[in-house]
């Protein structure tokens, strides 16, 4: 009973900020009051029409699409190699591929900043895409790897023995069997890239900044609830994505991997 109360209280603590953000996003005035004096959608209108957000949204789209389209094939190839490449130390290679996960964002960000500046690439999105590929790669490798482990090589052998070329086996047999892993990888990669902030802050300028960086700049400079509106949109989108993932792969299988 006490445990149950504690769990409920702690979950309330975890969800409280989300609830407040959603409530505040409908606040009619620039200076916040709680509970709000009325309901208004003006901050949603402001969030969607603010030019720097529009530009940042385009940048986010390009950077995330670029990073995910690169990381997905690269990560899938790596996952196949890890499981089937008869590597001498697959564990060590896996550690290498997952290592960007443990590097502090400011260290990676500053490193990329120095490299970008020396290449004269500060205003372009290329460095952002490169950094994002490295940052989402661990998630892709891990998600696809789970599917590869469950793959039965007999099915591929069967296709090959019936005369299919290796390429055809890969496209018609292997890829479809990897679909759950690929789908999870895609969604994780998108969520991680769309929300990436610290590394991107260091290598962003006014021209190429992505949405989280633009939101950060706005929070520092303005006090009105525009970010609450934008955050609410983010939260709703995130829940949709999580729900989708849960349809396709069992979340507890991914995160509590003993099951």
């Amino acid at each position: 009973m006490i445990l149950r109360l504690a769990v409920v209280a702690l979950l309330a603590f975890m969800t409280l900020p989300t609830v407040v953000v959603i409530a505040v996003s409908f606040n009619p005035t620039a200076i916040l009051s709680f509970p709000p004096a009325g309901l208004s959608l003006r901050w949603y209108a402001n969030a969607l029409t603010y030019p720097q957000f529009q530009r940042a949204a385009v940048n986010s789209l390009v950077v995330t699409a670029g990073a995910v389209l690169l990381a997905l094939p690269i990560g899938t190839a790596a996952a196949l190699a890890l499981e089937r490449g008869r590597l001498r130390a697959p564990g060590a290679w896996a550690t290498v591929l997952l290592s960007p996960l443990v590097v502090p964002g400011v260290a990676a960000g500053l490193g990329f900043l120095i490299v970008a500046a020396s290449l004269g690439l500060l205003q372009s999105r290329a460095v952002l895409v490169a950094a994002h590929v490295a940052l989402v790669l661990p998630f892709v490798v891990r998600s696809v790897w789970v599917s590869v482990t469950n793959l039965d090589p007999a099915l591929e052998r069967a296709a090959a023995s019936l005369g299919a070329t290796p390429a055809r086996v890969f496209v018609r047999v292997t890829l479809p069997l990897l679909r759950p892993g690929l789908f999870a990888a895609l969604l994780f990669a998108v969520v991680v890239s769309v929300n990436e902030f610290v590394v991107s802050l260091f290598i962003s300028t006014r021209v190429n900044e992505i949405l989280p960086v633009a939101m950060f700049t706005y929070v520092v400079n303005y006090t009105d609830p525009t970010i609450a509106a934008l955050s609410t949109l983010f939260i709703v989108a995130t829940f949709l994505v999580m729900w989708l993932v849960d349809r396709v792969v069992d979340l507890s299988a991914v995160f509590l991997h003993h099951r």
Partner: peptide, 27 residues
């Protein structure tokens, strides 16, 4: 439990921190 636990994990640092600015301020 898993969804409620993971939701903040995937909402992004700026959204989450901004939310705490609202809660911790005197609003």
């Amino acid at each position: 439990l898993l969804v409620l636990t993971l939701a903040p994990f995937f909402t992004g640092a700026i959204v989450r921190t901004y939310a705490w600015m609202l809660v911790l301020g005197n609003t």
